[in-house]
């Protein structure tokens, strides 16, 4: 009898191992590789919003923004457009109408120089109205839309390299500003994981490497390609782990140096 009971117990355990729990989703290794075919990029606004929610983050300390727009080539314009679009998000979070106005003028000027359609840029006239009405959340969405549509148009008219550089610029400024805020104030372990973005670094590494030779030869693109492995090493702490303070400080230093170089042109 005892042998029968123990055999039944073993049979039940074996079934439990062989048959996944009802509703559980299992993936084959081949299927896991499918996910890497497509990437939905985040907006820097997501990082900023997460931090903004935690305390009275002093955005003015990371809100530095160059008013310059007279750059000599489209690669530099594109990188600066990305930086400025992210600066606009910071200005919105700090509810700084004057700064936002300055940033929008630079974004529109750079976009015009990149031959973005008027139909897209005409929408920028709503920024002033939304800012005057204090509709900051809508403004944030509107600015994100403008950046996205500019990138899409660049992609569609065959300027994928320009679109890539706009994206890289925006992402780099978002990462740098976030590291800058975290450097000034202690955050809990899971909040520091906002900087844990090795797969985004990998994505941008591939995108930059796939650019045309002329774009890749640009000194700023070269500087970015050289810096990305260092950035990856700083943020690649593993899922569910905090990013150490020393990594955050180094990330901010490295990111700030790159941003300054891009702004210099």
């Amino acid at each position: 009898m005892n042998r029968l009971v123990s055999s039944l117990v073993m049979l039940v355990m074996l079934i439990g191992v062989l048959i996944p729990a009802a509703g559980a989703e299992t993936l084959s290794e081949a299927e896991k590789k499918e996910f890497a075919q497509n990437l939905a990029l985040p907006s820097p606004a997501e990082m900023f919003l997460a931090i903004n929610r935690l305390n009275d983050a002093d955005w003015s300390k990371v809100a530095g923004s160059s008013p310059r727009y007279d750059y000599g080539d489209n690669y530099v314009r594109a990188l600066n457009l990305g930086l400025r679009a992210t600066d606009g998000l910071v200005a919105i979070l700090s509810k700084d109408k004057a700064k936002l106005g300055e940033v929008i003028v630079v974004v529109i000027t750079l976009a015009e120089d990149l031959m973005v359609q008027d139909t897209i840029l005409d929408r920028s006239s709503t920024f002033e109205q939304l800012a005057n009405e204090g509709r900051w959340s809508e403004l944030r969405d509107e600015l994100d839309s403008l950046r996205y549509l500019i990138e899409m148009e660049m992609d569609q008219i065959g300027d994928q390299d320009i679109a890539t550089l706009v994206r890289v610029g925006g992402w780099l400024k978002g990462l740098t500003a976030t590291a800058g805020l975290m450097k000034k104030q202690h955050y809990s372990d899971n909040v520091t994981s906002i900087l844990y973005q090795p797969n985004l670094v990998d994505y941008f590494t591939v995108e930059l490497a796939n650019m045309e030779p002329e774009a890749k030869a640009n000194p700023l693109a070269q500087a970015l390609m050289k810096a990305l492995p260092k950035i990856r090493a700083l943020v690649n702490v593993g899922y569910g782990k905090p990013v150490p303070d020393k990594n955050i400080e180094e990330l901010h230093r490295l990111g700030s140096a790159l941003v300054a170089k891009i702004e210099e042109g």
């Binding site: 299927e31 499918e34 996910f35 890497a36 075919q37 497509n38 990437l39 939905a40 990029l41 985040p42 997501e46 990082m47 919003l49 997460a50 931090i51 929610r53 935690l54 899971n190 909040v191 994981s193 906002i194 973005q197 797969n199 985004l200």
Partner: peptide
């Protein structure tokens, strides 16, 4: 994202999500 799929097929993508959102 807008697309088409055959019956029984899946669309896959990765995305970066942020803690606290």
């Amino acid at each position: 994202q807008i697309g088409e799929l055959e019956k029984g097929r899946s669309y896959y993508f990765n995305t970066q999500l942020t803690a606290g959102i």
